[in-house]
Amino acid sequence: MKKSFIRICKSTVKFLLPGILLLLACNKKFDEPPINEDPDIAVTMTIAELKARYQGVGFFQNIEEDKTITGVITADDRSGNFYKQIVIQDETGAIPILLDGTNVYTSYPVGRRVFVNLKGLMLGDYGGTIQLGLDSSRSGAGYLNLGRIPSVQFDLFITKGSYGNSVAPKVITPADLSVNILNPLQSTLVQLDHFQFADGDTAKTYGDPSKKISALNFTLWNCDKKSIVLRNSSYAVFAALKVPQGNGSIVGISNMFNGTQQVLIRDTTDVRLSQPRCSP
Score class of each variant (00 low, 15 high):
118 L>S: 00
118 L>P: 05
118 L>M: 08
119 K>H: 06
119 K>Q: 15
120 G>H: 08
120 G>V: 01
121 L>K: 04
121 L>C: 05
121 L>F: 01
126 Y>E: 06
126 Y>W: 12
127 G>F: 11
128 G>S: 07
130 I>V: 15
131 Q>M: 10
131 Q>G: 00
131 Q>A: 04
131 Q>P: 00
133 G>N: 06
135 D>T: 11
136 S>T: 14
137 S>K: 14
137 S>C: 00
138 R>A: 02
139 S>N: 14
139 S>Q: 02
139 S>M: 04
139 S>P: 07
140 G>R: 09
141 A>P: 00
141 A>K: 13
142 G>R: 03
143 Y>M: 08
145 N>T: 11
146 L>C: 05
147 G>A: 10
147 G>E: 01
148 R>W: 12
148 R>N: 11
148 R>M: 07
150 P>E: 01
151 S>M: 04
152 V>D: 14
152 V>H: 13
153 Q>R: 11
153 Q>H: 12
157 F>C: 07
158 I>T: 05
158 I>S: 04
159 T>Y: 02
159 T>S: 14
162 S>Y: 03
164 G>V: 00
164 G>C: 06
166 S>M: 10
171 V>G: 05
172 I>A: 10
173 T>M: 06
174 P>W: 10
177 L>W: 04
177 L>T: 14
177 L>P: 00
177 L>K: 01
178 S>T: 15
182 L>D: 07
182 L>C: 02
182 L>W: 04
183 N>P: 03
183 N>L: 05
183 N>V: 04
183 N>M: 04
184 P>G: 12
184 P>V: 10
187 S>K: 04
187 S>A: 15
187 S>I: 08
188 T>C: 13
188 T>H: 03
189 L>R: 14
189 L>E: 03
191 Q>N: 12
